[in-house]
Computed example of a mutant assay.
Amino acid sequence: MAESAEDHEADLDAFLDKFRGPQRYEGAFSPETWEQEFDKIPMFMKKAPSEIDPEQHPDLACLQSIVFDEEQTLEEQATAYKNEGNDYFKEKDYKKAVISYTEGLKKKCNDQELNAVLHTNRAAAQFYLGNYRSALNDAVAARKLKPNHFKAILRGALCHMELRHFAEAMIWCEEGLRINPKEKKLLETRTKADRLKRTEERDLRKAKLQEKREGSQKEVLLKAIKDRNIKLSPLSSVDDSVMSAGLAKISLDGFSSESAIGAKVCLDENGNLTWPVLFLYPEHGQTDLISAFHEESRFIDHLMIMFEELPPWDVEKKYIPSELELYYEDEEKEEIYQIDTQTTLLQVLQHQRYFIKAGTPTFLVLVKLAPFSKNYLSRKKIHRLK
Protein backbone atom coordinates (compact mmCIF):
# COMPACT_ATOMS: atom_id res chain seq x y z
CA MET A 1 0.00 0.00 0.00
CA ALA A 2 2.92 2.35 0.80
CA GLU A 3 4.33 1.84 -2.68
CA SER A 4 0.96 2.40 -4.22
CA ALA A 5 0.51 5.72 -2.37
CA GLU A 6 3.97 6.86 -3.44
CA ASP A 7 3.21 5.96 -7.02
CA HIS A 8 -0.07 7.88 -6.85
CA GLU A 9 1.64 10.95 -5.41
CA ALA A 10 4.26 10.82 -8.18
CA ASP A 11 1.57 10.67 -10.84
CA LEU A 12 -0.17 13.69 -9.32
CA ASP A 13 3.06 15.71 -9.27
CA ALA A 14 3.67 14.84 -12.90
CA PHE A 15 0.16 16.02 -13.78
CA LEU A 16 0.58 19.32 -11.94
CA ASP A 17 3.99 19.90 -13.54
CA LYS A 18 2.20 20.39 -16.85
CA PHE A 19 0.72 23.67 -15.55
CA ARG A 20 3.82 25.04 -13.83
CA GLY A 21 5.78 26.16 -16.90
CA PRO A 22 5.40 29.00 -19.38
CA GLN A 23 3.15 26.83 -21.54
CA ARG A 24 -0.54 27.92 -21.93
CA TYR A 25 -3.60 25.95 -22.79
CA GLU A 26 -4.81 26.20 -26.36
CA GLY A 27 -6.99 29.23 -27.06
CA ALA A 28 -6.07 31.07 -23.84
CA PHE A 29 -6.25 34.92 -23.69
CA SER A 30 -3.00 36.88 -23.81
CA PRO A 31 -2.31 38.89 -20.63
CA GLU A 32 -1.53 41.94 -22.78
CA THR A 33 -4.51 41.82 -25.21
CA TRP A 34 -7.17 39.97 -23.28
CA GLU A 35 -9.62 42.92 -23.38
CA GLN A 36 -9.53 43.13 -27.18
CA GLU A 37 -9.86 39.35 -27.48
CA PHE A 38 -12.74 39.32 -25.01
CA ASP A 39 -14.56 41.95 -27.07
CA LYS A 40 -14.49 39.65 -30.10
CA ILE A 41 -16.82 37.18 -28.40
CA PRO A 42 -20.36 37.92 -29.70
CA MET A 43 -21.96 37.66 -26.26
CA PHE A 44 -19.60 40.29 -24.80
CA MET A 45 -19.24 42.66 -27.77
CA LYS A 46 -19.79 46.29 -26.79
CA LYS A 47 -20.62 47.22 -30.39
CA ALA A 48 -21.37 45.03 -33.40
CA PRO A 49 -19.30 45.59 -36.58
CA SER A 50 -21.07 47.47 -39.39
CA GLU A 51 -20.32 44.62 -41.81
CA ILE A 52 -19.90 41.03 -40.75
CA ASP A 53 -17.17 39.08 -42.52
CA PRO A 54 -17.70 35.32 -41.92
CA GLU A 55 -13.92 34.73 -41.95
CA GLN A 56 -13.16 37.43 -39.37
CA HIS A 57 -16.27 36.89 -37.23
CA PRO A 58 -17.43 33.29 -37.79
CA ASP A 59 -19.30 33.12 -34.48
CA LEU A 60 -21.18 36.37 -35.18
CA ALA A 61 -22.00 35.31 -38.74
CA CYS A 62 -23.40 32.07 -37.35
CA LEU A 63 -25.61 33.96 -34.90
CA GLN A 64 -26.83 36.29 -37.64
CA SER A 65 -27.74 33.35 -39.84
CA ILE A 66 -29.78 31.97 -36.96
CA VAL A 67 -31.53 35.31 -36.30
CA PHE A 68 -32.31 35.93 -39.96
CA ASP A 69 -32.89 32.38 -40.99
CA GLU A 70 -34.41 32.29 -44.47
CA GLU A 71 -36.56 29.43 -43.28
CA GLN A 72 -38.32 31.79 -40.89
CA THR A 73 -41.57 33.36 -42.01
CA LEU A 74 -41.47 36.88 -43.48
CA GLU A 75 -43.15 38.18 -40.35
CA GLU A 76 -40.47 36.58 -38.16
CA GLN A 77 -37.69 38.02 -40.29
CA ALA A 78 -39.27 41.50 -40.29
CA THR A 79 -39.68 41.28 -36.51
CA ALA A 80 -36.01 40.34 -36.12
CA TYR A 81 -34.98 43.40 -38.14
CA LYS A 82 -37.35 45.57 -36.11
CA ASN A 83 -35.76 44.35 -32.88
CA GLU A 84 -32.29 44.92 -34.30
CA GLY A 85 -33.30 48.46 -35.31
CA ASN A 86 -34.67 49.09 -31.82
CA ASP A 87 -31.34 48.06 -30.30
CA TYR A 88 -29.48 50.46 -32.60
CA PHE A 89 -32.00 53.17 -31.76
CA LYS A 90 -31.39 52.72 -28.03
CA GLU A 91 -27.67 53.09 -28.74
CA LYS A 92 -28.50 56.31 -30.68
CA ASP A 93 -27.00 54.79 -33.81
CA TYR A 94 -29.84 56.14 -35.93
CA LYS A 95 -28.25 55.43 -39.31
CA LYS A 96 -27.99 51.73 -38.58
CA ALA A 97 -31.47 51.79 -37.10
CA VAL A 98 -32.81 53.18 -40.40
CA ILE A 99 -31.02 50.41 -42.29
CA SER A 100 -32.50 47.71 -40.05
CA TYR A 101 -36.05 49.05 -40.27
CA THR A 102 -35.67 49.34 -44.04
CA GLU A 103 -34.59 45.71 -44.27
CA GLY A 104 -37.63 44.75 -42.26
CA LEU A 105 -39.93 46.65 -44.63
CA LYS A 106 -38.27 44.98 -47.60
CA LYS A 107 -39.65 41.66 -46.39
CA LYS A 108 -43.16 42.92 -47.31
CA CYS A 109 -44.84 40.71 -44.78
CA ASN A 110 -48.61 40.63 -44.46
CA ASP A 111 -48.64 41.92 -40.89
CA GLN A 112 -49.83 45.53 -41.45
CA GLU A 113 -49.48 46.33 -37.76
CA LEU A 114 -45.81 45.31 -37.91
CA ASN A 115 -45.22 47.29 -41.10
CA ALA A 116 -46.82 50.35 -39.52
CA VAL A 117 -44.46 50.01 -36.56
CA LEU A 118 -41.46 49.67 -38.87
CA HIS A 119 -42.47 52.85 -40.71
CA THR A 120 -43.06 54.72 -37.46
CA ASN A 121 -39.77 53.59 -35.94
CA ARG A 122 -37.89 54.52 -39.09
CA ALA A 123 -39.62 57.92 -38.99
CA ALA A 124 -38.27 58.40 -35.46
CA ALA A 125 -34.73 57.48 -36.54
CA GLN A 126 -34.93 59.77 -39.58
CA PHE A 127 -36.24 62.55 -37.37
CA TYR A 128 -33.22 62.38 -35.09
CA LEU A 129 -30.96 62.43 -38.15
CA GLY A 130 -32.64 65.67 -39.25
CA ASN A 131 -34.26 64.06 -42.31
CA TYR A 132 -37.66 65.57 -41.58
CA ARG A 133 -39.23 65.04 -45.01
CA SER A 134 -38.23 61.37 -45.03
CA ALA A 135 -39.53 61.02 -41.48
CA LEU A 136 -42.84 62.63 -42.49
CA ASN A 137 -43.15 60.29 -45.47
CA ASP A 138 -42.78 57.32 -43.11
CA ALA A 139 -45.37 58.74 -40.71
CA VAL A 140 -47.81 59.14 -43.62
CA ALA A 141 -47.06 55.58 -44.80
CA ALA A 142 -47.66 54.23 -41.29
CA ARG A 143 -51.05 55.97 -41.11
CA LYS A 144 -52.09 54.53 -44.45
CA LEU A 145 -51.59 51.11 -42.90
CA LYS A 146 -53.06 52.09 -39.55
CA PRO A 147 -54.84 55.50 -39.58
CA ASN A 148 -55.01 55.81 -35.79
CA HIS A 149 -51.38 54.82 -35.12
CA PHE A 150 -50.75 57.29 -32.31
CA LYS A 151 -46.95 57.32 -32.46
CA ALA A 152 -47.08 57.93 -36.23
CA ILE A 153 -49.42 60.89 -35.67
CA LEU A 154 -47.16 62.33 -32.98
CA ARG A 155 -44.08 61.92 -35.15
CA GLY A 156 -45.82 63.46 -38.17
CA ALA A 157 -46.91 66.49 -36.14
CA LEU A 158 -43.33 67.07 -34.98
CA CYS A 159 -42.05 66.73 -38.55
CA HIS A 160 -44.55 69.32 -39.79
CA MET A 161 -43.32 71.67 -37.08
CA GLU A 162 -39.70 71.28 -38.14
CA LEU A 163 -40.71 71.88 -41.76
CA ARG A 164 -42.67 74.99 -40.66
CA HIS A 165 -45.96 73.51 -41.89
CA PHE A 166 -47.81 75.02 -38.94
CA ALA A 167 -51.36 74.53 -40.23
CA GLU A 168 -50.66 70.86 -41.01
CA ALA A 169 -49.02 70.39 -37.63
CA MET A 170 -52.17 71.65 -35.93
CA ILE A 171 -54.33 69.25 -37.94
CA TRP A 172 -52.16 66.27 -36.96
CA CYS A 173 -52.19 67.40 -33.34
CA GLU A 174 -55.99 67.58 -33.35
CA GLU A 175 -56.21 64.07 -34.80
CA GLY A 176 -53.84 62.75 -32.13
CA LEU A 177 -55.68 64.52 -29.32
CA ARG A 178 -58.93 62.85 -30.37
CA ILE A 179 -57.17 59.57 -29.52
CA ASN A 180 -55.38 60.82 -26.40
CA PRO A 181 -56.73 64.21 -25.22
CA LYS A 182 -54.15 64.51 -22.44
CA GLU A 183 -50.99 63.89 -24.49
CA LYS A 184 -48.72 66.67 -23.23
CA LYS A 185 -46.43 66.72 -26.26
CA LEU A 186 -49.33 67.17 -28.68
CA LEU A 187 -50.90 69.88 -26.53
CA GLU A 188 -47.61 71.79 -26.44
CA THR A 189 -47.02 71.32 -30.16
CA ARG A 190 -50.53 72.51 -31.06
CA THR A 191 -50.11 75.64 -28.95
CA LYS A 192 -46.71 76.41 -30.45
CA ALA A 193 -47.92 75.74 -34.00
CA ASP A 194 -50.90 78.05 -33.52
CA ARG A 195 -48.66 80.84 -32.20
CA LEU A 196 -46.13 80.50 -35.00
CA LYS A 197 -48.88 80.28 -37.64
CA ARG A 198 -50.37 83.55 -36.42
CA THR A 199 -46.94 85.18 -36.40
CA GLU A 200 -46.20 83.96 -39.90
CA GLU A 201 -49.54 85.26 -41.20
CA ARG A 202 -48.95 88.63 -39.53
CA ASP A 203 -45.48 88.92 -41.05
CA LEU A 204 -46.88 88.00 -44.46
CA ARG A 205 -49.53 90.73 -44.19
CA LYS A 206 -46.87 93.25 -43.20
CA ALA A 207 -44.66 92.22 -46.10
CA LYS A 208 -47.50 92.57 -48.60
CA LEU A 209 -48.44 95.97 -47.20
CA GLN A 210 -44.83 97.11 -47.34
CA GLU A 211 -44.52 95.82 -50.90
CA LYS A 212 -47.66 97.71 -51.90
CA ARG A 213 -46.40 100.88 -50.22
CA GLU A 214 -43.02 100.61 -51.89
CA GLY A 215 -44.67 99.95 -55.25
CA SER A 216 -46.75 103.11 -54.87
CA GLN A 217 -43.69 105.12 -53.88
CA LYS A 218 -41.77 103.68 -56.80
CA GLU A 219 -44.50 104.72 -59.22
CA VAL A 220 -44.41 108.29 -57.92
CA LEU A 221 -40.63 108.32 -58.11
CA LEU A 222 -40.58 106.91 -61.63
CA LYS A 223 -43.09 109.53 -62.76
CA ALA A 224 -40.88 112.29 -61.36
CA ILE A 225 -37.90 110.88 -63.28
CA LYS A 226 -39.91 110.59 -66.50
CA ASP A 227 -41.25 114.12 -66.12
CA ARG A 228 -37.66 115.37 -66.05
CA ASN A 229 -36.78 113.39 -69.18
CA ILE A 230 -34.01 111.56 -67.33
CA LYS A 231 -32.90 108.29 -68.93
CA LEU A 232 -32.26 105.39 -66.61
CA SER A 233 -30.38 102.97 -68.83
CA PRO A 234 -28.70 102.87 -72.27
CA LEU A 235 -30.82 101.79 -75.22
CA SER A 236 -29.66 99.36 -77.87
CA SER A 237 -30.01 101.88 -80.70
CA VAL A 238 -27.92 105.03 -81.03
CA ASP A 239 -30.63 106.79 -83.05
CA ASP A 240 -31.63 109.92 -81.08
CA SER A 241 -35.28 109.76 -82.09
CA VAL A 242 -35.54 106.16 -80.95
CA MET A 243 -33.89 107.04 -77.63
CA SER A 244 -36.33 109.87 -77.00
CA ALA A 245 -39.28 107.60 -77.66
CA GLY A 246 -37.69 104.89 -75.56
CA LEU A 247 -38.12 106.90 -72.37
CA ALA A 248 -41.82 106.14 -72.40
CA LYS A 249 -41.06 102.41 -72.37
CA ILE A 250 -39.41 102.53 -68.94
CA SER A 251 -41.54 100.55 -66.49
CA LEU A 252 -41.43 99.47 -62.87
CA ASP A 253 -40.31 95.98 -63.91
CA GLY A 254 -36.75 97.02 -64.61
CA PHE A 255 -36.52 100.02 -62.32
CA SER A 256 -34.66 100.06 -59.04
CA SER A 257 -34.25 103.19 -56.98
CA GLU A 258 -31.33 101.63 -55.09
CA SER A 259 -27.77 102.01 -56.28
CA ALA A 260 -25.08 99.34 -56.27
CA ILE A 261 -23.71 100.77 -53.03
CA GLY A 262 -27.02 100.82 -51.18
CA ALA A 263 -27.87 104.54 -51.46
CA LYS A 264 -31.18 105.46 -53.11
CA VAL A 265 -32.63 108.20 -55.28
CA CYS A 266 -35.34 109.91 -53.25
CA LEU A 267 -38.17 112.34 -53.85
CA ASP A 268 -38.43 114.83 -51.02
CA GLU A 269 -41.56 116.52 -49.66
CA ASN A 270 -41.04 119.48 -52.02
CA GLY A 271 -40.98 117.23 -55.09
CA ASN A 272 -37.20 117.44 -55.61
CA LEU A 273 -34.94 114.47 -56.38
CA THR A 274 -31.74 113.64 -54.55
CA TRP A 275 -29.36 111.11 -56.10
CA PRO A 276 -26.40 109.04 -54.92
CA VAL A 277 -23.54 110.35 -57.06
CA LEU A 278 -20.21 108.61 -57.59
CA PHE A 279 -16.99 110.45 -58.47
CA LEU A 280 -14.11 108.47 -60.00
CA TYR A 281 -10.44 109.50 -59.90
CA PRO A 282 -8.84 107.34 -62.61
CA GLU A 283 -5.33 108.67 -61.97
CA HIS A 284 -5.33 107.26 -58.44
CA GLY A 285 -7.96 104.52 -58.61
CA GLN A 286 -9.98 106.29 -55.91
CA THR A 287 -13.70 107.08 -55.55
CA ASP A 288 -16.01 109.40 -53.61
CA LEU A 289 -19.72 108.92 -52.98
CA ILE A 290 -22.20 111.68 -52.22
CA SER A 291 -25.21 109.76 -50.96
CA ALA A 292 -27.71 112.63 -51.36
CA PHE A 293 -26.83 115.05 -54.18
CA HIS A 294 -29.75 117.47 -54.62
CA GLU A 295 -30.70 117.83 -58.27
CA GLU A 296 -30.51 121.65 -58.12
CA SER A 297 -27.06 121.68 -56.49
CA ARG A 298 -24.01 122.72 -58.54
CA PHE A 299 -21.01 120.47 -58.93
CA ILE A 300 -18.60 123.17 -57.80
CA ASP A 301 -20.40 123.49 -54.46
CA HIS A 302 -19.75 119.82 -53.70
CA LEU A 303 -16.18 119.95 -54.99
CA MET A 304 -15.43 122.85 -52.64
CA ILE A 305 -16.58 120.79 -49.67
CA MET A 306 -14.97 117.54 -50.83
CA PHE A 307 -11.55 119.11 -51.30
CA GLU A 308 -11.65 121.58 -48.43
CA GLU A 309 -8.92 119.33 -47.09
CA LEU A 310 -6.73 117.51 -49.58
CA PRO A 311 -7.14 113.70 -49.55
CA PRO A 312 -4.17 111.63 -48.30
CA TRP A 313 -3.70 110.03 -51.73
CA ASP A 314 -3.10 113.46 -53.33
CA VAL A 315 0.59 113.57 -52.44
CA GLU A 316 1.26 116.22 -55.12
CA LYS A 317 -1.49 118.45 -53.66
CA LYS A 318 -2.97 119.23 -57.06
CA TYR A 319 -6.65 118.38 -56.46
CA ILE A 320 -7.75 121.98 -55.98
CA PRO A 321 -11.41 122.66 -56.90
CA SER A 322 -10.57 125.44 -59.35
CA GLU A 323 -8.12 123.11 -61.16
CA LEU A 324 -10.52 120.16 -61.52
CA GLU A 325 -12.46 119.12 -64.59
CA LEU A 326 -15.51 116.87 -64.71
CA TYR A 327 -16.43 114.42 -67.46
CA TYR A 328 -18.83 111.61 -68.16
CA GLU A 329 -18.41 108.84 -70.70
CA ASP A 330 -20.86 107.90 -73.42
CA GLU A 331 -20.09 104.21 -73.75
CA GLU A 332 -22.47 103.73 -76.68
CA LYS A 333 -20.53 106.15 -78.90
CA GLU A 334 -17.21 105.77 -77.03
CA GLU A 335 -17.09 109.51 -76.50
CA ILE A 336 -16.57 111.74 -73.49
CA TYR A 337 -18.40 114.90 -72.42
CA GLN A 338 -16.87 117.69 -70.32
CA ILE A 339 -19.15 119.23 -67.70
CA ASP A 340 -19.06 122.83 -66.57
CA THR A 341 -18.66 122.67 -62.79
CA GLN A 342 -21.07 125.60 -62.47
CA THR A 343 -23.96 123.48 -63.84
CA THR A 344 -26.44 121.62 -61.67
CA LEU A 345 -26.84 117.88 -61.47
CA LEU A 346 -30.29 118.09 -63.08
CA GLN A 347 -28.91 119.94 -66.10
CA VAL A 348 -26.42 117.13 -66.71
CA LEU A 349 -28.92 114.32 -66.13
CA GLN A 350 -31.27 115.86 -68.66
CA HIS A 351 -28.66 115.82 -71.41
CA GLN A 352 -29.72 113.66 -74.35
CA ARG A 353 -26.58 111.53 -74.16
CA TYR A 354 -26.57 110.92 -70.40
CA PHE A 355 -27.88 107.58 -69.11
CA ILE A 356 -27.99 106.59 -65.44
CA LYS A 357 -26.73 103.09 -64.71
CA ALA A 358 -27.46 101.09 -61.56
CA GLY A 359 -29.31 104.07 -60.07
CA THR A 360 -26.08 106.03 -59.62
CA PRO A 361 -24.94 108.99 -61.75
CA THR A 362 -21.17 108.66 -62.22
CA PHE A 363 -18.54 111.25 -63.19
CA LEU A 364 -14.80 111.37 -63.83
CA VAL A 365 -12.61 113.90 -62.02
CA LEU A 366 -9.33 114.96 -63.68
CA VAL A 367 -6.77 117.66 -62.93
CA LYS A 368 -6.61 120.33 -65.64
CA LEU A 369 -3.51 120.05 -67.88
CA ALA A 370 -1.95 117.30 -65.73
CA PRO A 371 0.16 114.76 -67.74
CA PHE A 372 -2.17 111.90 -66.80
CA SER A 373 -5.22 113.93 -67.85
CA LYS A 374 -3.71 114.81 -71.23
CA ASN A 375 -2.81 111.20 -71.90
CA TYR A 376 -6.21 109.93 -70.75
CA LEU A 377 -8.17 112.42 -72.85
CA SER A 378 -5.97 111.98 -75.92
CA ARG A 379 -7.65 108.63 -76.57
CA LYS A 380 -11.18 110.04 -76.42
CA LYS A 381 -13.39 112.18 -78.62
CA ILE A 382 -14.34 115.08 -76.33
CA HIS A 383 -17.55 117.14 -76.36
CA ARG A 384 -18.31 120.06 -74.15
CA LEU A 385 -21.71 119.72 -72.53
CA LYS A 386 -24.11 122.41 -73.71
Rank of each mutant, 00 (worst) to 15 (best):
E308I: 06
E308N: 12
E308Q: 12
E308A: 14
E309Q: 14
E309P: 05
E309F: 10
E309Y: 09
E309K: 15
E309S: 15
L310F: 10
L310D: 05
L310A: 14
P311M: 07
P311A: 08
P311Y: 04
P311F: 03
P312S: 15
P312H: 09
P312E: 15
W313G: 09
W313M: 09
W313R: 11
D314I: 05
D314N: 07
D314L: 03
D314W: 02
V315G: 01
V315Y: 10
V315C: 06
E316R: 14
E316D: 14
E316W: 10
K317W: 06
K317M: 12
K317R: 14
K317G: 07
K317E: 15
K317Q: 13
K317Y: 11
K317F: 10
K318S: 08
Y319R: 02
I320L: 12
I320G: 04
I320W: 05
P321R: 04
P321Y: 01
P321D: 05
P321F: 00
S322P: 00
S322F: 09
S322I: 11
S322T: 13
S322H: 09
E323T: 12
L324D: 00
E325F: 05
E325M: 13
E325T: 06
E325L: 12
E325G: 02
L326H: 02
L326Y: 01
L326R: 04
L326K: 03
Y327P: 01
Y327R: 04
Y327L: 07
Y327Q: 04
Y327C: 04
Y328C: 03
Y328Q: 05
E329H: 10
E329W: 05
E329Y: 09
E329V: 07
D330Y: 05
D330I: 06
D330F: 05
D330K: 05
D330N: 15
D330Q: 07
E331C: 11
E331S: 14
E331Q: 14
E331V: 10
E331G: 08
E332T: 11
E332N: 14
E332M: 13
E332Q: 15
K333D: 08
E334R: 10
E334C: 08
E334S: 14
E334F: 03
E334P: 00
E335H: 02
E335D: 07
E335P: 00
E335R: 02
I336Q: 02
I336H: 00
I336M: 13
I336N: 00
Y337D: 02
Q338N: 06
Q338K: 13
I339W: 00
I339M: 05
I339L: 08
D340L: 10
D340C: 12
D340W: 00
D340E: 14
D340S: 15
D340N: 15
D340V: 04
T341Y: 03
T341V: 13
Q342F: 11
Q342L: 13
Q342K: 15
Q342Y: 10
